[in-house]
Simulated assay, not measured.
Amino acid sequence: MNAVIHMEVKKNLQDRGLLFWALLLPIIFTVLFISIFTAGTGGEEKRQVILSIVPGYTVMFLFFIMISMTESFIKDRNTGIVSRIASTPLSPYAYLLGKWVPYMYIVFIQIVVLLSFGKLIYDVPLKQPLWLLLISLFLTFTVTGLGLALSVIVKTNNMGIAFTQVIALGGAMLGGLWVPVDVMPETLQTISHLLPQYWAHQALQEAMGGTMEAMGLLQPLLILFCFGLGGFIIALISYPRFLQRAKG
């Protein structure tokens, strides 16, 4: 498993496109939309807009890591790496973990950089750093867990890109990352509560603003954990079919 982790880390360090997707593009969008939505505003209203956009766009762009994850799995499948690994004592569980862990590092670093950018440039509050750390860890687990499931299920890179866009952009729209949930129609508000983006965004906002209580933190963390665990279970269940496609 350590060899798989090492190989995946090395590939990602050489991928400059990942740097663009993970850091540069989110920063560009954050600056652009803050400038648009805060034009003509000031004081508390401007602060609330910034406090929504910074964590909102952070959460949205985390899900684009799924593109890199699906590409990596499909490349391993098409080049015969998966078939060769299957002939070794390495278990599917260990292989999936070896592929999973490096992307956890990437997503967690992405969260730290984007929230730090918001603090340095826009002076967003980070009043509950311990809660923010816990939320970031669980959010990392969720995003990469779902990415792991998608990587094993999709058959082509184009399918991976298409599903990632639906998950990232659809989840952003319905999860309240673009507009506040309380101004949405009641039906969409109900749907938003079924999405990990909603719970991550709400938790980050509250922890940044210093209003998150310890008991109130348990619900979003549990929901995020269940999404990530569900993704890993789906990946394990779907792996035999993924292996069959690799051998075929």
Rank of each mutant, 00 (worst) to 15 (best):
Q48S: 15
L204V: 09
G210I: 00
W100R: 06
P102D: 00
V59N: 05
W21T: 15
K75Y: 10
Y93W: 13
P26E: 01
A22D: 04
P26G: 03
I28E: 02
I81L: 12
S83I: 03
F61H: 06
L18R: 05
R245S: 04
I223E: 07
M212D: 05
N158V: 06
M66F: 05
I36P: 01
M159T: 14
T142W: 10
S151R: 01
S192K: 06
T70E: 01
A94E: 07
P55F: 01
Y122P: 12
L243S: 09
K99V: 03
V9G: 07
I135Q: 08
L13R: 11
M60V: 15
W178H: 02
N2G: 15
A168M: 01
M69F: 10
L188S: 07
D182Q: 12
L96F: 02
S151F: 07
V179D: 04
Y95G: 08
V143K: 08
V54L: 05
I234T: 13
F63A: 04
K119Y: 15
F63I: 08
A3Y: 03
M7D: 15
Y198W: 13
V179I: 15
L236W: 09
F232S: 11
M173F: 15
A149M: 02
L97P: 00
M66S: 13
I36C: 03
T88K: 02
T164P: 07
L126R: 01
A149P: 00
P55C: 01
L139E: 06
A162P: 00
T211Q: 00
L130V: 13
A39Q: 11
L32D: 10
S68W: 01
L218I: 08
L169F: 08
W21Q: 14
I85Q: 06
L132F: 03
F163C: 14
Q165L: 13
L23A: 13
E45N: 14
S192N: 05
M212N: 04
M7R: 15
I234F: 15
S83F: 03
N158Q: 12
F108C: 00
Y103I: 08
S83D: 12
V112C: 10
F232C: 13
I121Q: 11
L19R: 11
I233T: 07
A149R: 03
E8H: 10
S52I: 06
S68P: 09
I53C: 11
K99C: 07
T187W: 11
W199F: 00
I233P: 02
F141V: 02
G160C: 04
P240D: 01
P185T: 01
E44Y: 10
F61D: 01
I34L: 12
T79R: 05
T211M: 00
G231W: 07
I67G: 07
F33H: 05
K46F: 02
M159W: 09
G145S: 07
V113D: 00
N157E: 10
I28F: 13
W21E: 13
H6M: 09
A168T: 05
